[in-house]
Design a protein around this nucleic acid. Structure first.
Lengths: 249, 249
DNA sequence: CGGGTTTCTGCGTTTTTTTGCCGGATTTTG
DNA sequence: CAAAATCCGGCAAAAAAACGCAGAAACCCG
């Protein structure tokens, strides 16, 4: 088994179960605990997980591990949220993924907006619930404690049944060559389904995550209708994407 | 159980109940009191809680002396929760409804319990998510904002597919003649489905709600396996229910 | 193709961490 | 004041981590 492959597996396990033991992994993958430890060390260096004595934990355990004021790059995410909200009009069916950018959008929805929001992200759902005029449809299935969304075949099947007007994706990595990519297999499956079920696909991302990529591909760039970042639409960084036929806001 | 995991659990408990006892934690997590004490010491060093003789207090407890949340009859609900938890063992599939009594139960689940919890109640799901060893299955559908649970045909269909070992119902009204009753049509449909899908049906209710009824019937008394109140099992108020063949705890 | 270099992995040894336990000191409680 | 509960410090065993090393595989480059 290749190193990268192994690390991807470890990461998947952490995201799924919220914790892993070095000894368990060593047995599962049939490599020495030293190797596992070295893998965990590297993954911890990259910030993908938290290494502790005896194994590793997912980030969701240390909730206050992020910058103390809360969400990373929050002011940028607010800008993005504002632009995204302009795309929503009354009566629409809106699919959303998880992630802090989406959460920021959920918080900023104008109170008079009447629409139906569909999501499997628990934090997002909590925000939608507080909104006076929004109908909320929750996608059910097994909950991934790490990403706080529902994942699994049931969830995917349910999304496939939907025909949404618009779909907002919090994006982890976007790149001209690889399209949108992620590091969690389950999340990838969900997002793929969401894209297929929506008339219009909107990617929300902070500029920092642009032109980077991760192991698993969600889709090529041509599936994306609109790209929203905190930058002005004419920023040179966005030019290649506009040239690729994507509406850039 | 990993050290960090344990400390996260302790912190969660402190923030939830505003106090913890070393002895209780030691029993719950199955480690020596010495270990608990050392954990408390470390957490206190980090300023996460205040260590006192015999246990620890939450920081917020000092600042505001009356933050005790507004749940009605909470101490009674804790008693009920404790009795209910004794019915759950490792590996079980557990269906739960919504309601503050169920929520209290969710909060009090011992950390070493490994089980699968299935629910459409958002607040309950949030608690289950914090638990280190519980798998959470979320029932999806349209969210009823006022009861904070998912309701609708999809949810009912999904519950019907389940075969749970046990089902806990937060009960609004129970009565010898009318059985269990409710005032929300959607909730009634859900609870009916839950009863049908479970081997064992447990009703949780505070004594105050006993011998009252509401407009819509969920089921007759004979569908109920067990009734749990804050009263001792031999309380005369409970006699008629025991006589009706219900196990009373 | 071949030789040198880098990377990866496993093994033995040493070091550190974690945890439970014990005896004596300290605090709490009735 | 006395009994019970709790705390503290030290100790020891077990588990895990760190370290250095060496063989094997992969890679690079002329």
């Amino acid at each position: 088994m290749l190193k990268k492959e192994r690390q991807a597996y470890i990461l998947h396990q952490v995201n799924l179960h919220n914790k892993v033991l070095s000894s368990t992994l060593s047995n599962e993958i049939h490599v020495s605990e030293d190797t596992i430890r070295r893998d965990l060390y590297e993954l911890a260096e990259e910030g993908k997980l938290i290494k502790v004595h005896g194994g590793a934990l997912s980030h969701s355990f240390n909730e206050v591990h992020f910058p103390s004021n809360g969400v990373y790059s929050q002011s940028n995410k607010k800008k993005i949220a504002q632009k995204a909200i302009n795309l929503i009009s009354n009566g629409m069916f809106v699919l959303t993924s998880g992630g802090t950018t989406i959460l920021e959008m959920a918080r900023s929805l104008p109170p008079q907006l009447k629409a139906t929001f569909i999501s499997g992200s628990i934090p997002a759902i909590l925000e939608y619930m507080h909104h006076p005029n929004i109908e909320v449809i929750l996608i059910g299935d097994k909950i991934s404690k790490n990403s706080k969304i529902t994942v699994g075949l049931e969830a995917i099947a349910k999304i496939r049944q939907m025909r949404a007007d618009i779909c907002f994706l919090g994006t982890n990595a976007i790149d001209l060559h690889h399209g949108i990519t992620e590091n969690d297999w389950d999340v990838v499956q969900l997002k793929k389904a969401m894209i297929e079920s929506s008339q219009k696909v909107v990617c929300l991302t902070i500029a920092e995550k642009m032109n980077s990529f991760q192991p698993i591909q969600i889709c090529e760039l041509n599936k994306i209708s609109t790209l929203i970042t905190e930058l002005p639409p004419d920023d040179p960084l966005l030019k290649p994407y506009a040239d690729a036929g994507i509406e850039v806001l």
